[in-house]
Amino acid sequence: MMKGPGKITGEVLRHVFAKPATISYPKGELVIDKNYRGKIDFDASKCIGCKLCVRDCPANAISIENIGTKEDKKMQLTLNYAHCIFCCQCVDSCNKDAISFSPDIELAGINRKDMIVKL
């Protein structure tokens, strides 16, 4: 290590020309990895209503109900993302690939009731 008052000169010059370590957010672009576990997506046409996802959810954040008739089933997933811990165990538990995760993380809100969404 260099001794004396000049020892920081190199470090200072390097930082003058270096790219910032931080990103500008929310004004700049937010880069999220495509593997990031954000809010889940639901494909109702693939769902068979086995409710394995509901059984495995550690936070009791999801429920599935049939809003169609007994013959013509139409599944609806209700997600409370205020309760959701974004572990995506439901994605792993689903045998029909009806649930997938998205890199959507901008979920902040001021009303808790708005955080219960029907997918």
């Binding site: 990895d33 593997n35 990031y36 576990r37 811990i85 974004f86 572990c87 995506c88 165990q89 995760f101």
Partner: peptide, 15 residues
């Protein structure tokens, strides 16, 4: 942390 988020899907609770 970016690497951990890439591998696991979250920055701290990699799951």
């Amino acid at each position: 942390l970016d690497i951990l988020a890439m591998l696991g899907g979250n920055r701290v609770n990699y799951g």
